[in-house]
Amino acid sequence: MSLFFKCILGVALLAVFVEGHDKVVVCYYGTWATYRSGDGKFSVSDINASLCTHLIYTFVGIKDDGTVVSLDPYLDLPDNYGLGTFKKFNELKQQNARLKTILAVGGWNEGSAKYSTMAASATLRKTFITTARDMVLTYGFDGLDLDWEYPNQRDSTHGADDVNNFSLLLKELREEFDKYGLLISVAVAALETSASLSYDIPTMAKCQDSNDSLLFSMPVTGKTAMLKLERAQRAVLKVAMAKPFRYPTTQLYAECCPPEKLVMGVPFYGRTFTLTDANVNGVAAPASGVGLAGQYTATNGFIGYNEFCNKLKTETWDVRYDSVAQVPYAVQGKNWVTYDDPSSLVKKVEYAVNLGVAGVMVWSIETDDFHGRCGEDFALLRAINTALA
């Protein structure tokens, strides 16, 4: 499963509360779900704007010269009979006047090279910042989510220089966005081994010294989510083992993100594995590789909650409970799936609230049971809001 932490620097500015509680609920929206078929299709019109305080639109990208551009003009823009989803997304604020909308740039598929090259050049940084600002303002977003995955990693063109260049980019981006009262969020690596390669944490911590409009998002890829924030329990994903994941330590970011400014993220999907032996099927059973794909998301090793809850209704699965991770998992022959349901999410949220964090973030709303095929619509989001209240 994927876990997230988001550091909110200035809760007063960002906490635009939903009904029933005063916590932050940050919802990522994967726009590609517009193209899915049947019950998997999820358009802006399917979003329930009353269940989130912040909605993040994913993704736009950049050109080689640093210019921020739409990656799917037909979907995003109204030109040439396009769907104009930018505009429709921001019109959701008519349904929830306190909703904030954020435009995400980057993502895994964008890679690291273009961002490495851009951040190394004062001219390209300026182009990136001004075109990002213009796109955000033109279409009515309230801020930008910078999702460079990752400085000094993957296909980076400038290697270790990315670390300082990233800090400089953030500083300059803030200086420009502050003029317009715009929010900035940043997706950063969570595992210490990765984060230490990409970021100058003390420099990033200085974000507390200026205005309150910067968030840090910390995603972690793993399987199931543990209710412990201890360094000793952090694990690294190994395809060969169907084994629950622990929450990563927040120690690395502690100087930047005290608990009251953290938002804990939770996944709306499960991880699937193929067992080596169908008869050896408990927690930590050996697996030969990733498992089945969801009907709509169509990615081996991954299944949306909406896809899997329907499988549990229509197929025979042995559903079990991991008392250590406090999450369900299910077995069917050699198929092994670990996932979160409303009950396990409530426990995570209650645990997070007891730690004093500001709220919860989700990836991503289009894999919730938004049609209510397995019960109440948006069962996961509603469970989160109920627990926060």
Rank of each mutant, 00 (worst) to 15 (best):
S2P: 01
L3Y: 11
F5D: 07
F5S: 13
L9V: 13
L13V: 13
L14A: 13
H21S: 03
V26E: 08
V26N: 09
W32H: 12
D39T: 12
V44M: 05
V44S: 08
S45K: 15
Y57N: 07
G61R: 03
I62E: 06
D64G: 11
D65Y: 09
G66E: 08
G66M: 05
T67C: 06
S70H: 08
D72P: 06
P73N: 06
Y74P: 01
L75W: 09
P78T: 00
P78S: 02
N80G: 01
N80V: 03
F86M: 05
L92M: 08
A97Q: 12
R98Q: 08
I102C: 04
L103Y: 13
T117P: 00
M118Q: 03
M118N: 02
A120Q: 10
T123L: 12
L124Q: 14
F128G: 02
F128K: 04
A132N: 03
D134F: 10
M135T: 15
V136E: 02
D145I: 06
D147G: 04
N152M: 04
D155M: 07
T157N: 12
T157S: 14
G159E: 08
D162T: 07
L169F: 15
K171Y: 15
E176V: 13
G181N: 06
L182P: 08
L183N: 06
I184F: 11
V186L: 12
V188S: 14
A189E: 11
A189P: 02
E192W: 07
S194G: 11
I201L: 12
T203Y: 10
L214D: 01
M218G: 00
M226S: 15
M226K: 11
K228W: 07
Q233P: 00
A235C: 10
K238Y: 13
A240F: 08
K243V: 14
F245A: 15
P248H: 15
T250E: 09
Q251G: 04
Y253R: 01
Y253P: 00
E255V: 12
P258C: 05
P259E: 09
E260P: 01
E260R: 14
V263W: 01
V266R: 06
P267W: 04
F268V: 11
R271F: 10
F273W: 08
T274F: 06
N279A: 12
N281Q: 04
N281A: 12
P286F: 09
V290H: 05
G294T: 05
T297V: 12
I303Q: 04
N306K: 11
F308C: 02
N310P: 00
K313W: 00
E315A: 13
E315H: 12
W317C: 04
W317M: 09
W317R: 07
S323F: 05
V324Y: 13
Q326T: 06
V331C: 05
T338N: 06
L345E: 02
K347L: 14
Y351N: 06
A352N: 03
F370P: 00
F370H: 02
R373N: 11
R373P: 00
G375C: 07
E376V: 14
F378R: 04
A379I: 04
